[in-house]
Amino acid sequence: MIEFEKVTYTYPSGVTALRDISLSIGGGEIVALMGENGAGKTTFLKLLNGLLKPTSGVVRVDGVDTRTTTVASLARLVGLVFQNPDSMFFCPTVLEEVSYALIQFGLSKEEGAKQAEKTLISLGLWHLRNLSPFTLSGGEKKRLAIAVVMAWSPKYVVIDEPTSGLDGRGKRTLKELLEELLRGGKCVIISSHDVEFVSEVASRVVLLRRGEVIADGPSEEILTNTELLTSASLLTPQIPALFKELRDQGFRGLNHRCIKMEDALRELSSLLGRPNLDLRSGSA
């Protein structure tokens, strides 16, 4: 459990990035932190592993106050993946890149390599093991950055803007990866302004505006609330926007909380009176 208790964070420059935040995040969920650029998302993530310590209030990770411990020891519990993978890589090969942190955490070279191998295989990156990280494509770099963190199996996986620089295919692979993490019992926290991606993967949305939490709840509830999203400078995802338009045009009985592609297809086909329609492959 990660707990925020009345957390305020003010940068040395005097800018208050987060104000009076109280919430808790437990296991078994994918939480999306949303808001426009500069709303405080990245600051929030840096408080999770102690890179930043609250100016006032307390952040606790599994009961440990982040002010009383080091980033290195928190990092074992909370794996933070940065937005730009290039700000991380420096080893000659992909394999060494992944085992580096493991050795930092005290594993022997052999154990590190073994663990790295396991991680790379599970993320589908094993065939790239001998390449230099810098030669990878954008999507591969992103996955490698996640692999680096996954290697030591942190309980909380935190990813800053996971979809930045990814195309349709990359996003789909990422979605599968996040779901896999969830099945493995991890708690996944992402920050994003990609409403479409979030509506397909997240179970809970925390909406930030100018450093304050303006909403926190199930994604079906928040991502269908156009007023709320607009006030945070976010667009309404395509499906709820479409459903609203349909309702306005007189189509009744459509679920107000529909945000996912599969659900939308089911809703609409039953509305059209052909519930058993063999849907063409329309995966999200």
């Binding site: 840096k46 592993n49 290195a72 074992r76 940065f82 991380m88 680096v148």
Partner: peptide
């Protein structure tokens, strides 16, 4: 940012 990223992996 780079320093932060490295610290986050235990450096």
């Amino acid at each position: 940012e780079i320093i932060n990223a490295q610290r986050s992996r235990g450096v």
